[in-house]
């Protein structure tokens, strides 16, 4: 039996750390960049949809959630197959869901068959978000799931460089294997996307439609097909972000809500409709959040203020450049 004692609360006190090592700052930057790349991947999907279809998809977070669950169940079901295939599966399924949704629900709007297209777009994407969220809640339940990291690191012993199956040690800097693989896959996906957008005819067609739909149509580009492609690709990018992060975070059906909010901040920060802006915005938010949390002098509040650090930068950029970093002037 415990013997209760009289409670006498004391207040927290900040313990400011004035001396900060360079290794620590470097670690925070690396950490911020790794998570920032994944933020960027998701935000680029949202900006692609906005720039081509001129709508904001409120179901973007749910595609992120869907991508994560596909990887989780793929790895559970097909243990013998190479784990990277789970990422491919997530990309294919989220692309397909995005494709079907755009064809069935958004094409009528693009064809002018909907009276109030702006309101319709908001409602129909919100509807999709709720549908996907509660569908998954019904299918998999509310309990958290987490996919195992795609690969374990080989165990290496060294003085400066050493590894365990889960952790990479570079001197005092430690990097988690799951996070490292997630960032590398996201980086590859980003590289592929940029190549597609800037080096292929279809990618350039997408850019053309985003700049001027009528002019693009005059030169033989079908804007309706580009709409479908943009929405499907946007959904796929969100799905890819979820697919790599399900190995880092525990996954629940409502996991997409905060991720979606972050994407909105990033695309406004980078400039609505700008792919380079979203890329840079994602990296900035990732690094600022990491540095802010690590260097904030009151340890009791540092993590609690994490989102605030990114939003302060967001507010400052909007104050100085209301169109965002790479936004076009309206």
């Amino acid at each position: 039996m415990l013997t209760p004692t009289v409670w006498d609360a004391s207040l927290f006190h900040a313990s400011p750390q004035l001396a900060v090592s360079g290794e620590f700052v470097l670690r925070l930057i690396i950490d911020g960049l790794m998570i920032g790349i994944i933020y960027a991947l998701m935000a680029i999907g949202l900006t692609l949809i906005f720039s081509v279809l001129n709508i904001v998809s409120f179901a973007h977070g749910e595609f992120y959630m869907l991508g994560g669950y596909i990887v989780y169940f793929f790895l559970q079901t097909f243990e013998a197959l190479p784990p990277l295939l789970s990422i491919v599966a997530a990309a294919i399924v989220t692309f397909a869901v995005g494709f079907l949704f755009e064809r069935i629900f958004l094409q009528p709007m693009a064809r002018g068959e909907v009276e109030r297209p702006n309101e319709y777009a908001i409602l129909v994407t919100f509807g999709l978000a709720f549908f996907l969220q509660f569908l998954m809640l019904g299918l998999v339940g509310p309990f958290p799931k987490k996919a195992h990291r795609l690969f374990d690191l080989p165990q290496i012993e060294g003085t400066f460089f050493r590894t365990t199956k889960a952790t990479l040690f570079l001197g005092d800097i430690t990097i988690s294997a799951g996070r490292l693989f997630a960032a590398l896959i996201a980086l590859l996906a980003l590289a592929g996307l940029l190549w597609f957008m800037y080096r292929t005819w279809t990618g350039r067609a997408l850019q053309a439609v985003s700049q001027d739909r009528n002019a693009a149509a005059v030169v033989g580009i079908n804007p309706l097909n580009m709409n479908t492609l943009a929405f499907s690709m946007g959904a796929m990018l969100a799905g890819l972000a979820g697919a790599v992060l399900v190995t880092v975070y525990s996954w629940v059906p409502w996991v997409g809500v905060p991720a979606s909010s972050k994407s909105f901040v990033i695309i406004v920060l980078g400039g609505m409709g700008s792919i380079p802006g979203s890329l840079l915005g994602g990296l900035i938010i990732g690094v600022v959040e990491s540095l802010g949390t690590g260097l904030f002098p009151d340890p009791a509040r540092a993590q609690a203020y994490r989102d605030v650090f990114g939003l302060v930068i967001f507010a400052l950029v909007l104050l100085l450049r209301p169109t965002g970093l790479f936004g076009r002037k309206l």
């Binding site: 525990s250 990491s290 540092a302 994490r306």
Partner: peptide, 25 residues
């Protein structure tokens, strides 16, 4: 002891973990 607070529902703890490791060094 030292206290580190986080919001309920937080997913990303990378920087906080780095901070704790730094404080414990």
């Amino acid at each position: 002891s030292e206290t580190y607070l986080a919001e309920q529902g937080t997913q990303e703890f990378g920087a906080l973990i780095a901070k704790i490791q730094e404080d414990m060094k």
